[in-house]
Computed example of a mutant assay.
Amino acid sequence: MSSSQNTPINLVSVNTVPERAKKVIGTVIENVKDKYNIVHAGNSITIEGVAPLLKSIQPPPGILFCASMWTPEQQEEIQKIAKETIPGIKTHAAPTGLQAQGGPEGVVKYLMGRIDEIMKEK
Rank of each mutant, 00 (worst) to 15 (best):
M1P: 03
M1R: 07
S4T: 08
N10P: 08
L11Y: 10
S13W: 08
V14D: 05
T16W: 01
T16D: 14
P18E: 09
P18D: 10
R20M: 13
K23Y: 06
V24N: 09
V28S: 05
I29E: 07
V32H: 02
D34K: 08
K35F: 06
K35T: 14
V39W: 05
V39D: 11
I45C: 09
I45K: 08
T46W: 13
E48S: 11
I57P: 10
I57M: 03
I57C: 06
Q58T: 06
F65M: 11
S68L: 00
W70Q: 12
P72Y: 04
E73V: 00
Q74G: 07
I78E: 05
A82Y: 02
T85A: 08
T85K: 00
I86T: 01
K90I: 01
K90P: 14
T91F: 04
P95V: 03
Q99W: 01
Q99D: 14
G103V: 13
G106H: 04
G106Q: 05
G106N: 02
V107P: 00
V108Q: 07
K109Q: 11
K109I: 11
M112P: 01
M112A: 04
G113W: 10
G113D: 12
R114C: 13
I115L: 13
D116A: 08
I118W: 05
M119F: 11
E121S: 12
